[in-house]
């Protein structure tokens, strides 16, 4: 069984979801790439931010 770490799972999820978002939401290859990269960065950054938030609010 494949057992990735939490962060690896997030990176894989972000990679695949961003690929589909980029292709389906933009019309030209350049804009698809930029949109996909932007989505990927947002996924990863928000995960890091929320992880630290949970770290600080955990009892």
């Amino acid at each position: 069984m494949f057992q990735p770490s939490h962060f690896t799972a997030v990176l894989l999820f972000a990679l695949f979801a961003s690929t589909v978002f980029g292709i389906t939401m933009r019309e030209t290859p350049r804009r698809m790439f930029r949109s996909g990269t932007y989505c990927f960065a947002l996924f990863v950054c928000s995960v890091i931010v929320f992880s630290w938030v949970m770290y600080f609010i955990s009892p």
Binding site: M1, F2, Q3, P4, A9, L12, F13, L15, F16, A17, T19, V20, I23
Partner: peptide
């Protein structure tokens, strides 16, 4: 790209049990 992304995601989900 869509084929690879979606099939890989599904296959990894299966591989994770």
């Amino acid at each position: 790209f869509l084929f690879v992304a979606i099939v890989c995601m599904f296959a990894l989900g299966m591989a994770m049990g």
